[in-house]
């Protein structure tokens, strides 16, 4: 059984087709990396799973997207869906509020009022995102006072607070220095036990290091979807071979 699934998925931005007949199934508690050159549709596909493309005015989706066999576009409302599928963006985007307010945001908009429960969830999320030791005494400082890497982990903690089962990450480390990147990668590795993670990355080494399976996209098509090890040692498709060896892209 798949955690996330796309069946015959097409997506259009106006007249331009950005995704062409994508079929992909993602197993629970795994890390899946989406790779491919810019404009290949990997981020677009990622954002289909929590319907972030709905925010783009002329985007149109065809086909079926499933989570736990529930149709994402038909059988569940968008807000409920996004609580179950957390998202982390390319640039750290904490709210200009305190650390505590940032992490508790998802709980509050859900209508959670119990202060003790909110506090417990905040602490747990910060621990899960390996940030607790660094911010323990400064929960009521502005999240913007943290470093870029810490800000990104705040964003991860914020996404974890509503207890999602899936975490979508859109190039979460591309704006960070190598040390912060390593921390995020370690974090992804540990989070795998509890969450299903899909990560878009431009960094091939990163994909090789952290993912179980890798999907290679090119011009809106899914070219190859394989176990990461096989993908990076012995890919089936020539295009994949060319891309991962750096011959184009």
């Amino acid at each position: 059984m798949y955690k996330l699934e796309a069946k015959n998925a097409n997506l259009f931005y106006g007249d331009k087709q950005a995704l062409k007949n994508i079929n992909i199934g993602i197993k629970p508690n795994s890390v899946t990396a989406f790779i491919g050159p810019s404009g290949c549709g990997k981020s677009t596909l990622l954002r289909c799973f929590n319907r972030m493309n709905d925010l783009i005015e002329n985007a149109r989706v065809e086909g079926d997207f499933l989570m736990d066999e529930i149709n994402i576009y038909k059988d569940i409302n968008t807000y409920e869906l996004r609580k179950r599928i957390g998202m982390v963006f390319q640039k750290p985007n904490p709210f200009p509020k305190t650390i505590f307010e940032n992490v508790s945001y998802g709980l509050r908009i859900n209508g959670m009022k119990d202060k003790k429960m909110i506090e417990e969830r905040v602490v747990e999320s910060l621990k899960q995102s390996a940030l607790w030791n660094e911010v323990e005494g400064s929960l009521h400082k502005s999240a913007l006072s943290l470093s870029g890497g810490q800000q990104q982990r705040i964003c991860i903690a914020r996404a974890l607070a509503t207890e999602p089962t899936v975490l979508l990450m859109d190039e979460p480390a591309s704006a960070l220095d190598p040390i912060s990147t390593a921390k995020i990668e370690d974090l992804i590795y540990t989070l795998k036990n509890k969450f299903t993670i899909v990560i878009v990355t431009h960094n091939m080494q990163q994909a090789a290091r952290i993912s179980d399976k890798t999907a290679f996209f090119y011009l809106g098509e899914l070219i190859e979807f394989e176990k990461t090890k096989k993908m990076f040692t012995n890919p089936e498709e020539e295009k994949t071979q060319n891309y991962i060896t750096g011959r184009f892209g």
Partner: peptide, 24 residues
Amino acid sequence: SLREASYGMGATKWQTTSRITIPS
């Protein structure tokens, strides 16, 4: 990016506007 973060958490338009956009 702030609006996206809010929508990504499952916030409605009103929640995003009143809690994130206007205060910012």
